[in-house]
Every structure is written in C-alpha cells, then in structure tokens.
Design a protein around this nucleic acid. Sequence first.
DNA 1: TCTGAAAATGAGAATCGTTCTTATTAGTGT
DNA 2: ACACTAATAAGAACGATTCTCATTTTCAGA
Lengths: 146, 146
Amino acid sequence: MTSSNVEAQIRGRLTEAGIRYTDGRRQVVAALMNAQGPLSAAELHSQIADSVPLSSLYRSLAVMADADVLAPHHGTKGITRYELAEWLAGHHHHLVCVDCGAVDDIELPPRLESTLHDLVEAVAESGEFAAAGHALEVVGRCKACA
Amino acid sequence: MTSSNVEAQIRGRLTEAGIRYTDGRRQVVAALMNAQGPLSAAELHSQIADSVPLSSLYRSLAVMADADVLAPHHGTKGITRYELAEWLAGHHHHLVCVDCGAVDDIELPPRLESTLHDLVEAVAESGEFAAAGHALEVVGRCKACA
DNA sequence: TCTGAAAATGAGAATCGTTCTTATTAGTGT
DNA sequence: ACACTAATAAGAACGATTCTCATTTTCAGA
C-alpha cells in the first residue's frame, strides 16, 4: 500500500463517518507514517508544535481512534501512544523498553503471524468475547537503558 | 506450583532484595492469586480497603514490581493493573475490552506459546534489545460492552 | 534482649497526562 | 450566500499516580 493510498483510505474512512480531514489531522497522520513505532501526544506535539495546540491534538487523536484510523497503545506512566490502525499499516508488534517506555515496531515470522490470526478467530467464534485484533509486545530493555 | 509455594518464592525473592514481606503486601499477593486477571490499585484497594491506604498500596506495588514479583500491565485511562510475575504464575496472555478496559486471562495453544518463546530468544540474541519476556493481548469487546 | 539503621507506613499535597468547557472559527451541502 | 455541523483554541478541571515527611515497624548485630 503506497503512502498516498493510505492517505486516501484515511480521508475516505473519515469522510464517510462525517469527520473532517483537517490540516492538523493531516500533520498527525504524516508524522505517524514516518515513525517506526507509535507516538504519544507529547511526542507528536513536539514535531508539529506551533500549528496544533495540545488540546486539539488530543481531540483529534481521540476522534481518529474512534473512527478506527488510529490505534491507541497504552504505555508506562499513563502515556498513550498512537499509530496507524492495523488495516492501514499492518500489524502491531512491538519491542517495549520497561525502563524508558520507548516502543519500536518488529516484524514477525509469517508462521507466527498466521497463528495469531487463527487465535483471534477462535476467540471470536467462541461467542464469549468479540475479538477484533491482537497486539504482541516483546518486553525488555533498549540499548540506551540496558 | 502450589499456592503456598508461590508465597514462599515471593518471600524469598523479596528478602534477598532487602524488601520486607509485610502484612499489607501479603494481602496484595493474596488478592492477586485469587484473581483471574490483573487488578488495578483501585480494585485492590476496594478489596483490602481498611487495612491499606492508597498511598501505601501504590508504594508496595511499585516496590514489588521493581523486584520482579509483580508485573504491571498498562490499560485504558492511564490505569495500571498488576499481576504475579511470569515466573510465578505462568504467562501473560489477555483478553482486553477496548471499551471498559476489563482484562481476563486466556490460555494459549502450546504450539503458539513455544513459538513466542522462540521469538523472544531470537530478539535477545540479536543483541539490539535485551528481551526478557512477552505479552499478548487479544483486543475486542467483552460481553457487557458488546 | 537491647539498640540502631534501614524500610515501611500514613496522610496529604503535588504532579502530570488527559479530558472537559465555552466561545469562536471554518467546512460542507443546499 | 446560508445554515448546519464539526473543529479549533485557551484554559480550567479531573483523576491516577507519585512525592514529602514525620512517625512507626522490622531486622541484624552487639
């Protein structure tokens, strides 16, 4: 999926939900497409500071997460980081540093990927829980904190 | 591993770290051993209210997490839930409701379990990240929120 | 058993990420 | 252009968690 395709998909999804793809939101999406892992509101704010105040940023993140364009990822110290939703940018598999909370994406072997997919389906079919997706974290210490 | 064995292991680990296994901490551990998923400070407090004030509870949770006796699990709304560490109570695989944040344990097929274990080892051996364990979440909506 | 150092407790204030208000501004469809 | 709805901006408010500090408890060694 090309980068411009992602933008088009996002615009489409938002529009059909009656949500406007404003300039501030474009900047958020652009920052997230460049990142190699989820970003917090504070991290996003430091990249696009002048043009989008924090309160607007938080609202945009919430709205886009609600529309399933962004996926929230809850980390240490009550900090929530966001990344593009699974259907836009592939799966959510991370290396998480227990010290500083930094998050990086990792690739999973296809075999494991499909096994996880099967697991979600099996849970969904049990009827006990409306399983929609999965998230895998490998936890430890990053090079800086080791 | 029997329940009393778990207590003995916990006491041993704490003692060797110079940390006292006080009454309040015993109560926390007891509550977590009975639970079928991680509990937040507020949830624990409502179970052992009179005997342990919140500020002590938070401190005890932090200290025991530091000693790798408890494992923190970060959820919605900045709420952190704790459960017994992996080496005491098996692995950490959860059903997480995106609406209310409730968390339940799930069992994983052995095949998937060992594949995940291999993944952590592979990451650790890469030298880029000191991988120590993993956590898997199946996200969706619980029956109450569906 | 005493005694002193280290750890834990309890109460409350303080912190900080996040959410909520309210008034104002900007987009979209007719 | 008009009306309707959504988005913005600034700051106040909220709530989970952390910190401070004076007091109490626990443990190891004399």
